[in-house]
């Protein structure tokens, strides 16, 4: 419980800092901190595999990419926060209302499955939890994803495909003006052939 509050409070604070940080590099760093904390929460839930994946994917890939982008774009620091106070009242009210919305949910409970009028006393049931051999997260996931829910898996693979295509389409220019690296040609180039002596000096 203590761990939970620690992780979640740090995550909340650092996510606020992501927005409020003046330097984009700082905000990306806070972002990474958020990820760390959430993966901690996941570990607390017993989802060890997901926690690892979270770290690997988000921190290892995405956040680093963000860092690269931020550093390459070289955004000016002062630009961002000029109109913070202007939007604060309306935004604050809306935020409060939104929080209230969430608050309504908090003290609710899992709803009962169909209320039946049948007497359930005579039913004997087996506790499946005893029969199931305990699987790890990974095993369960694999078992479900590759058998029962393989369609979903395929669809998500399609999503990845689309993402890939999209990235390529939007970035790769096929026109002649763009300078592009051609690795094979670069490797094949011989120094002697590149520089030619045109005439004797």
């Amino acid at each position: 419980m203590i761990l939970f509050s620690v992780f979640s409070s740090i995550a909340l604070v650092s996510s606020v800092m992501v927005i409020r940080a003046k330097n984009p590099v700082h905000s990306v760093l806070f972002f990474i901190l958020v990820f760390f904390n959430t993966s901690g929460l996941l570990v607390l839930l017993g989802l060890d595999f997901f926690a690892m994946i979270f770290l690997v994917v988000y921190v290892g890939a995405i956040a680093v990419l963000f860092l690269f982008v931020v550093m390459m774009l070289n955004i000016k620091i002062a630009e961002i926060h000029e109109n913070v106070l202007r939007y604060l009242p309306v935004g604050g009210i809306i935020g409060v209302i939104f929080l209230l919305e969430i608050f309504f949910i908090v003290d609710n409970d899992y709803i009962p499955i169909l209320p039946t009028k049948l007497s359930t006393t005579y039913l004997t049931y087996t506790v499946y939890a005893e029969k199931i051999q305990s699987w790890t997260n990974l095993e369960t996931l694999g078992n479900l994803l590759y058998t029962t829910y393989f369609v979903l898996f395929l669809v998500s693979s399609l999503i990845l495909l689309v993402a890939m295509i999209g990235a390529i389409v939007l970035t790769m220019h096929k026109t002649t003006q763009v300078k592009r690296q051609d690795v094979f040609r670069q490797n094949a180039i011989d120094f002697k052939n590149t520089i030619k002596k045109i005439r004797d000096i």
């Binding site: 979903l152 399609l158 999503i159 689309v162 993402a163 999209g166 389409v169 939007l170 220019h173």
Partner: peptide, 22 residues
């Protein structure tokens, strides 16, 4: 889940083709 994945696939395609004329 199936619904969400399908919607997501569709939207992702749409984002890309909306910007396709670079």
């Amino acid at each position: 889940i199936a619904m969400y994945l399908a919607i997501e696939l569709q939207s992702l395609c749409f984002y890309v083709i909306a910007a396709s004329k670079r």
